[in-house]
Amino acid sequence: MNGRRRHLICDTLGLLLTIHVSAGDVTDRQAATDMLPDLADRFPTITKVWADGGYTGTLITWALAILHLAVTVIKRTDEITGFVVLPRRWCVERSFAWLLRSRRLVRDYERRPDSSEAMIRWSMTMLMIRRLAGPRQA
């Protein structure tokens, strides 16, 4: 995507907890410092967060000291060759794949980050409604 990054925190089922759309030059760690306090406020029972290699560094100690969130980084080892599903990292990738089933999210039609976040929330809401409704009857 040109100039936009979507940062997503989801639960183990892949359902959206919080979203942040930012400029393309914002790193994962910078976005996490904006998202994790919101996560801790909205969901106080969450104590552990799994993340990929982009969230290493002082973010881990900051989240533990300030927010009481244990951030565990799931890293790919050099011994693995080819495609291997890493534990817990696939949850967010699967959520992004579900979101991209919405035509509006395949291309970056939205000009403002808040409207892009709204479209992502709308898409996830539609996904959850379809799951609650169950299969269609003939």
Rank of each mutant, 00 (worst) to 15 (best):
V71L: 14
Q30I: 02
L127V: 10
G82V: 13
T61E: 11
C91R: 15
F96Y: 13
H7R: 11
D34A: 12
D25M: 06
A65Q: 07
V73E: 13
G3C: 07
D11T: 00
L8E: 02
E117F: 07
A51E: 05
I46S: 08
D28Q: 11
I19Q: 13
R89Q: 13
D114T: 15
M128K: 08
D38M: 11
A32S: 06
T125M: 14
A118Q: 12
S116T: 15
V26I: 15
S22I: 02
V85T: 15
M35R: 11
L99N: 10
A65S: 03
A138K: 08
S116D: 15
D34R: 14
L127D: 06
L36C: 06
R101P: 00
S102M: 08
R111W: 08
L13V: 00
L64Q: 06
R76C: 01
W62F: 06
D38S: 08
G134R: 01
G54R: 11
L86F: 13
S95I: 03
H68V: 01
I129A: 12
S123F: 06
V84C: 09
R4L: 09
C10K: 02
T81F: 03
E93K: 14
T125K: 10
G54Q: 05
Y109S: 03
R5M: 07
A63Q: 01
S123G: 07
W62V: 00
A51R: 09
R4E: 03
K48P: 02
K75E: 13
L105V: 02
H7P: 04
A65M: 08
G24N: 04
R29D: 02
T72W: 08
L69V: 01
L127H: 15
P135S: 04
K75Y: 07
D25E: 10
R131V: 04
L17T: 03
C91H: 15
Q137I: 09
